[in-house]
Amino acid sequence: MIENTYKWYPVYTRSRAEKKAYDELFRKGITTYLPLKKTVKQWSDRKKIVEEALIRSYLFVYISSREYAEVLMTNGIARFIYFSGQIASIPEQQINDLKLLLATDADLELIEYDIKAGEKVLVTAGPFQGMVAELVSIRNKQRIILRLNNMGYAININTSMAFITPF
């Protein structure tokens, strides 16, 4: 069944082809989001700040099911991500939360999650205000985990415990 409903879908790219696939999708007029982080790379003679994909080999497309084939026929795109036998979609709020996280200068750490569900919390102040996340303890530090549903990833951020309340 072909729907005309637009949703965010994660797509898997060929290795190190995220930016090329993003550019190609942009040229096709497909709304695409590639979360990038700044990283310092060290060479033998210099250091340089470069932007690289936050989640390697992933980017997000905002399409209807009519555009599945067009996305798959794009250079650099390998496949859609499936969850429980269906093409996974990402809630728009999670895409907005991801954009908010990357707009700050927060120290982000991407972790693949094999994390036991903790207490859900609401961030009440600071740059992540309004975000619902899960609280876990890592190396005796309190951190907040924002799960990216249907993808098997979570983002680990630092924020003050004074800024959270049970949800």
Score class of each variant (00 low, 15 high):
147 R>G: 02
111 I>M: 05
20 K>L: 13
19 K>D: 05
11 V>K: 05
86 Q>F: 04
18 E>P: 00
16 R>Q: 09
70 E>G: 11
50 V>M: 03
53 A>E: 08
134 E>K: 03
164 I>P: 02
101 L>V: 06
51 E>T: 07
23 D>S: 10
25 L>W: 08
73 M>V: 13
48 K>N: 08
120 K>S: 08
50 V>T: 12
161 M>R: 12
147 R>Q: 05
40 V>K: 15
1 M>D: 13
48 K>Y: 04
37 K>M: 13
2 I>T: 14
94 Q>C: 08
11 V>E: 01
47 K>A: 12
35 P>C: 01
73 M>R: 15
77 I>D: 04
150 N>S: 00
49 I>K: 02
45 D>N: 15
137 S>R: 14
161 M>Q: 13
55 I>N: 07
89 S>I: 09
42 Q>V: 15
55 I>H: 00
54 L>C: 01
78 A>M: 13
86 Q>T: 10
8 W>P: 00
34 L>A: 04
31 T>A: 10
42 Q>P: 12
38 K>G: 07
62 Y>W: 07
46 R>E: 06
91 P>V: 09
103 A>L: 03
136 V>K: 02
151 M>K: 01
7 K>H: 01
39 T>P: 11
84 S>M: 15
160 S>N: 14
161 M>T: 14
83 F>W: 03
26 F>S: 14
55 I>W: 02
149 N>K: 10
116 K>P: 05
34 L>K: 03
85 G>D: 00
14 R>Y: 08
53 A>V: 04
61 V>M: 08
124 T>M: 14
160 S>K: 13
57 S>K: 02
58 Y>D: 01
85 G>K: 09
109 E>Y: 10
133 A>C: 08
96 N>P: 11
49 I>C: 04
115 I>R: 08
115 I>L: 03
93 Q>K: 13
165 T>S: 15
44 S>Y: 09
125 A>L: 11
147 R>C: 02
64 S>A: 08
145 I>Q: 06
148 L>D: 07
93 Q>R: 15
29 G>A: 03
3 E>Q: 12
10 P>L: 10
63 I>L: 03
15 S>A: 11
121 V>N: 04
64 S>Y: 05
63 I>T: 06
148 L>E: 00
158 N>V: 15
42 Q>F: 14
99 K>P: 05
64 S>E: 08
132 V>P: 03
146 L>H: 00
76 G>L: 07
100 L>A: 14
30 I>Q: 00
105 D>M: 11
108 L>H: 11
17 A>S: 08
93 Q>G: 07
23 D>V: 06
11 V>M: 09
9 Y>L: 07
123 V>I: 15
